[in-house]
Design a binder for these strands. Structure first.
Length: 606
RNA sequence: GGGGUGGUAGUUAAGUUGGUUAUAACGCCGGCCUGUCACGCCGGAGGCCGCGAGUUCGAGUCUCGUCCAUCCCGCCA
């Protein structure tokens, strides 16, 4: 053994000593959390991931050299302390920490390593900029808040594996170096040295492999799979993220959903202490788009929207008439029953700002009070129109159509109106305190349309992915009427997030060919991209389906945080770089040459 | 690619209509202190005001550009 390794090894962690350990001889290893030098006494709080324990250096116990050393200890120095446990007198007990009833009376200390002054604060009271936290992630990860999130993530992952193992699922690893899959997102590419000019893609998901595994007879598959998408980031999106990936053979939705719901219920019970009522409600895509304007509604509060275009036929009010004249125009309304003054002018301006952000000209609003009507609602709506709108909204939301309140109306292209009104709805939920932060409201969204019209490319694009099975009744419409085909796709949503999405897959090669054809893939293109899948389907494919859950989002919700970076140990910035390692970086010409690559990027000034 | 917010000491922030030596707290260094637990008290060091131009007698402050972080749109299930 070298001298560098010879240090006093801990007998206990910094979180476990209690009254019952009184007089025990112990050794602690850890970081100095705080040191308090009182002159004649030195207190040092020693921290590890299990907790914090106070150590007392008393000149009556330790020799002078040890006592001097204790006085030089600073934050984040790593030490080993030898001593005995002493139960503290009543007034000296500290109820704020788990070990606060005892302290270690030191007999000796070893300074294992010193620490430079910290570039970030590890104390919770004033937080450091995220830029510095990411650069010094090794320090940030020492913070107990982050350590508890990493622990939570570990526990959720473990419980997930156990749950699916108990239900006969097999964990199979799929390739990271693979072929580009067609889920719409940009691929991360890896150049091949052996095959000049060819590239692997990192998987956007293991989609095709898990279907292949079903065809191979594995029946129930699960994987905690890393996925990669080269798209711009958001607070809840990282370029690499983790999915709980599931696939099953011989199933329908009604077989699959209870298994998945059972997993969610267990995880939420164990890690959020919440009982999720089962079964979860199922809402059609058409319903949620109509009532919430998004396919991942926040169901913790009401404020349902309603389309009112039909009530405003023949209107001559400018903004409304021009929306109705559009091919895909619509008008939607939202009503806040109650005090007409419940929103300030500033809040209403904020909502208008949101509407503009989504490309609308503005937001029509007006206060309906006992004295009459104000604002754009007075200007643009007749009394009959207003009453008809309130009638519809009242019926949908359960309020009396004669209630006073604030009416919001938004008119324009359907997509923009839905985007804006769904956001406005959530903004109101927050502004008016309608959202309980401790609530979790789950639901399935089902019956998705198969295809969406792509204006730019003038073709039908799969809304989910092209392996999604149409519902049985619509099989024959794939070629003749693609716009009205519904699929057996489903999302699990919670609090405005999409937690997971999946579908029953196509297992008939003829149906698969029809879908490829409907989205404008020629036979030759389909063969080039997915020949192996078409081949596999032709050798006895069982009916199958599955889902993928965003593990990061699941943990994020359980941890009650709003940034996915908080539950990922080494996340990337919004520009998809790692501030700690400074990846990505340039590589030298020799390395480029081996990979048969030449960069066309403009030279950076060093 | 576009819009919002931010960038001042190791950290977090303040900084007036453009004005002389850029403040404070925590941390760091030195001194004092025997029951602290955000210990206390005294003293000290520490600044490319993100970077680059411009306006001006004079810029942390005004203008333009640029970089980084973050939130959002586009993009992305």
């Amino acid at each position: 053994m070298t001298s560098a390794q010879a240090f006093w090894n801990r007998t206990h962690t910094c979180g476990e000593l209690r009254d019952e350990h009184n007089d025990a001889d112990v050794v602690l290893n850890g970081w100095v959390d705080r040191a308090r030098d009182l002159g004649g006494l030195v207190f040092v709080d020693v921290r590890d991931r299990y907790g914090i324990t106070q150590v007392l250096f008393d000149p009556a116990v330790v020799d002078d050299e040890t006592f001097q050393l204790a006085g030089t200890l600073r934050g984040e120095f790593v030490i080993a302390v030898r001593g005995f446990v002493r139960v503290r007198d009543g007034a000296q007990r500290n109820a704020n920490t788990a070990t606060g009833d005892v302290e270690i009376v030191a007999r000796g200390v070893q300074l294992l390593t010193r620490s430079a002054a910290l570039p970030i604060s590890l104390k919770g009271d004033n937080e450091t900029s995220e830029e510095l936290r990411l650069k010094h992630r090794y320090l940030d990860l020492r913070r107990p808040e982050l350590q508890s999130k990493m622990l939570l993530r570990h526990e959720v992952t473990l419980a997930t594996r156990n749950y699916f193992h108990e239900h006969k699922f097999i964990d199979v690893e799929t390739p990271i170096l693979t072929k580009s899959t067609p889920e719409g997102a940009r691929d991360y590419l890896v150049p091949s040295r052996v095959h000049p000019g060819d590239f692997f893609a990192l998987p956007q998901s293991p989609q095709l492999f898990k279907q292949i595994l079903m065809i191979s007879g594995y029946d129930r598959y699960m994987q905690i799979a890393r996925c990669f998408r080269d798209e711009d980031l958001r607070a809840d999106r990282q370029p690499e993220f983790t999915q709980v990936d599931i696939e099953m053979a011989f199933i329908t939705k009604d077989i699959l959903f209870p298994i998945l719901e059972g997993w969610v219920a267990r995880v939420w019970k164990d890690f959020a202490g919440v009982e999720i009522p089962l079964p979860m409600k199922r809402l059609s895509y058409a319903t949620v788009m109509e009532e919430y304007g998004v396919d991942r509604p926040d169901l913790r509060f009401g404020l349902k929207l309603a389309t009112v275009s039909d009530l405003l036929e023949g209107t001559d009010a400018g903004p409304l008439a021009s929306a109705l004249a559009l091919e895909d125009g619509t008008i939607k309304a939202l009503y806040l029953p109650g005090e007409p003054g419940q929103l300030s002018r500033k809040q209403l301006d904020g909502l208008t700002e949101t509407a503009k952000q989504f490309g609308l000209g503005g937001l029509l609003w007006g206060k309906v009070s006992n004295d009459g009507v104000s604002g754009a609602v007075k200007k643009f709506l007749t009394e009959e129109q207003r009453n008809a709108i309130l009638e519809r909204l009242g019926e949908r939301n359960g309020f009396d159509a004669s209630s006073t309140g604030i009416l919001l109306v938004s008119a324009g292209r359907t997509g923009q109106v839905n985007d804006a009104m769904s956001r406005i709805r959530v903004q109101l939920g927050n502004d008016l305190g309608l959202i309980s932060p401790s609530a979790y409201e789950f639901a399935w969204v089902v019956d998705f349309p198969a295809f969406g019209w792509n204006e730019d490319e003038e073709r039908w694009d799969p809304l989910h992915h092209p392996f999604t099975s149409p519902i049985t009744e619509h099989m024959g419409m794939v070629q003749s009427d693609p716009g009205n085909v519904l699929t057996d796709a489903y999302d699990m949503v919670c609090n405005g997030y999409e937690l997971g999405g999946g579908s029953i897959r196509i297992h008939d090669p003829d149906v698969q060919r029809a879908v490829f054809s409907a989205i404008g893939l020629t036979e030759a293109e389909a063969r080039a991209k997915f020949g192996f899948l078409l081949d596999a389907l032709s050798y006895g494919a069982p009916p199958h389906g599955g889902i993928a859950f965003g593990l990061d989002r699941v943990v994020m919700l359980l941890a009650r945080t709003e940034a996915i970076r908080e539950v990922i140990a080494f996340p990337k910035t919004q520009k998809a770089s790692c501030l700690m390692t400074e990846a990505p970086n340039a590589v030298d010409d020799a390395q480029m040459g081996e990979l048969h690559l030449v960069s066309t990027a403009p030279a950076k000034d060093a």
